[in-house]
Design a protein around this nucleic acid. Structure first.
Lengths: 234, 234
DNA sequence: CGAAGCGTTGAGGTTTGTCAAATCAGGTGG
DNA sequence: CCACCTGATTTGACAAACCTCAACGCTTCG
């Protein structure tokens, strides 16, 4: 990206823009007559690249990821995209303070989510406050957002990628120090404010330096030198 | 910034690092025996570059800006800085979900703040929830943070500066389309993920193109071509 | 007046982006 | 099972944006 010096120049994107919004279900169907049981939640399944919600949609429900992975992102008019976060099993996403979603969400791979009603989180004592869970979720997002602003504003490509890999390692299972990324290079690029080529080259560079290992597959990494990675991630 | 290819290289910063943390008052004194009057709040004054709080400080109180301007920011170990937001008269800042500040705050110029106790915002009904005010404040910050991530990750220098100027114009009084910035170039640079030189050059470029005017002082701008600015800011 | 701090400008270098092509992996059909 | 096709990833050559270093001008203040 970053090409528009004269005022209306096309920007190169890290991905092809999908011509139409692909939606699986517009509003999740209310699950008839369930007796408020806390254990059993309705679930929905999404295929890769399915949109779960888009900016401006009602935020009456939110989601808890059961299996798979999700990206949440915002778009500029010309298609440039900033992925603000990736979500993995156990993470809640789409929980908003207001009644509309501030960003869009899409499945990165085949994904199952649990559907929650935001109204269930409301504190029963009057309508003036909000639940502790909602507050905690907002806090976590804000903290994450602040960290990501530091990454985007201060770090170079090597530091960005190192930070990213450590972040993923901390949040996904993986055997030993091995991690398996569900997302493509263009998702990583749009998350880190880089291009796919720079992501690819930086990964190659880290591997060349022995900081990470690459056992075959493009999306599998072994974090070889954790100290170096931590140092890079500041 | 962006120089460290070998693993431990110095980074050039947009400012001199202040040798010691300058603090005016460590913990604001509890204002003795005030009868919970809502109209009269205790105030504190800060001089330029005074730190109001730092990352990790107790967040038992927060602030409402009366006059002046404040920056909130996070630092990396080597001194690189990301200013996540500027605050102006009327803005609340330092309001955290948790009990510790996630970032630091400093006065940009002579500044007066109103001191609020966060506990006053607690919803009376039990301790499980939180007040609507707190929630609203968190939401606003999150929304702002998301917008800023788009700026940092997707926009080029020209777009960043245009977005910045429009944002300031929308949030400060200013006569007509004229704005008066309280902050130095290095604050702007650390907010936009640029260097001071690039900020300076980009401003000069916008002025050369007639998009903005510069009536004398370095921190005064006339927003001449709002359409162009809006277009640039996407 | 001299010093210091802020802002601007210029020259040149580095990082990252762009474009293009090659390679690789996975899926499909024969 | 293999050939083929498609999409993802990697790599190379080159260009552009932005950064770095350095010098200079302006303003303020002692």
């Amino acid at each position: 990206m970053h090409a528009a010096t004269p005022m209306g120049t096309a920007q190169r994107l890290n991905r092809d823009v999908i011509p139409f919004r692909r939606r699986i279900g517009d509003t999740p169907a209310p699950w008839g007559g369930m007796g408020g049981g806390l254990a059993e939640r309705p679930r929905r399944a999404f295929a890769r690249d399915d949109e779960i919600f888009v900016e401006g949609d009602s935020a009456a429900v939110f989601y808890k990821l059961v299996t798979g992975a999700v990206r949440t992102y915002r778009l500029l008019n010309d298609g440039r995209r900033q992925i603000d976060a990736f979500h993995f099993a156990g993470d809640a996403f789409g929980l908003e303070g207001g009644d509309r979603h501030q960003c869009s969400a899409a499945a990165i791979c085949d994904t199952t989510v649990e559907v929650w009603l935001r109204s269930e989180l409301r504190t029963p004592a009057g309508d003036t406050g909000c639940s502790a869970e909602l507050m905690t979720a907002m806090m976590r997002r804000l903290e994450q957002a602040q960290g990501h602003m530091v990454l985007l504003g201060c770090k170079n490509a090597r530091e960005k990628v190192a930070t990213f890999l450590l972040g993923i390692a901390a949040r996904t299972p993986g055997l030993g120090n091995q991690i398996e990324l569900p997302m493509m290079r263009c998702d990583i690029a749009d998350h880190l404010g880089l291009t796919i080529e720079t992501v690819s080259r930086t990964i190659a560079e880290l591997a060349r330096d022995g900081v990470i290992g690459r056992p075959g597959r493009a999306r599998t990494f072994a974090l070889r030198d954790l100290a170096a990675l931590r140092h890079l991630s500041c």
